[in-house]
């Protein structure tokens, strides 16, 4: 897949804008997922993910083709999202936790015309709870947890995306995992 993406990037660099559509199509859910799990609500996540792709396109000449494209793209997305989190007023965090579930409501909407089995209701509640607990983590732990367990990146890749040493990635994952353990042990 990386090879096909590299071919597309060559075409984009030559000026073929249409080739970018395949790149967006391939990475849209991954990028959206990173933004959504880190920022907490669907509307802002969509905004951030779009911005990430537009920045990748306008800066495509600066992408080094010897590197992995996904790493570069995820770095743009996480940097934008972390910037947005920093700019938020501190009291917004309380807000975000309440609003943060709207992206998950689509599951209940989808099933609106058919009776939702009890276990699915439970699982939706559980998922909403887990989502909130991830959002309650400080941003530096949140980003490693999202990249590691939701996007399943390797420790090395996370280090490259966040531009921090692998040792730091490990420390943050350990602390994030311990915090979540305390919050989720009674679930």
């Amino acid at each position: 897949m990386e090879t096909l993406i590299k071919q597309k990037i060559k075409e984009i660099k030559k000026g073929d804008q249409a080739a970018f559509e395949d790149v967006v199509s391939f990475y849209q859910h991954k990028v959206y997922q990173i933004c959504f799990r880190m920022i907490g609500n669907a509307h802002e996540a969509e905004d951030l993910a779009q911005e990430a792709f537009i920045r990748a396109y306008t800066n495509i000449d600066r992408f080094d083709e010897r590197r992995k494209f996904s790493t570069w793209l995820y770095r743009i997305a996480t940097n934008l999202t972390i910037d947005r989190i920093r700019k938020k007023k501190p009291d917004y965090f309380l807000d975000a936790e309440v609003k943060g579930t709207e992206g998950l409501n689509m599951y209940s909407q989808l099933a609106a015309d058919q009776a939702l089995p009890e276990e699915e209701v439970e699982s939706l509640e559980l998922q909403t709870y887990i989502h909130k607990e991830i959002l309650a983590l400080p941003p530096k732990y949140r980003s490693v947890i999202v990249l590691r367990f939701l996007d399943e990146l390797s420790l090395q890749e996370i280090a490259e995306v966040l531009e921090i040493p692998v040792g730091t990635v490990k420390t943050r994952i350990h602390r994030g995992r311990e915090t979540l353990r305390k919050r989720l042990r009674h679930v």
Binding site: V24, S25, V31, Y32, R37, I54, G103, H131, I145
Partner: peptide, 28 residues
């Protein structure tokens, strides 16, 4: 700890909205 990880991993993957590709392409 092991259960925490499986709980986090069990969160279903979220998908970008349907109009996402078209929106990006029209904003380039």
């Amino acid at each position: 700890l092991k259960r925490t990880i499986s709980l986090v991993k069990s969160s279903s993957a979220v998908s970008a909205p349907e109009n996402f590709i078209a929106d990006v392409m029209s904003n380039l």
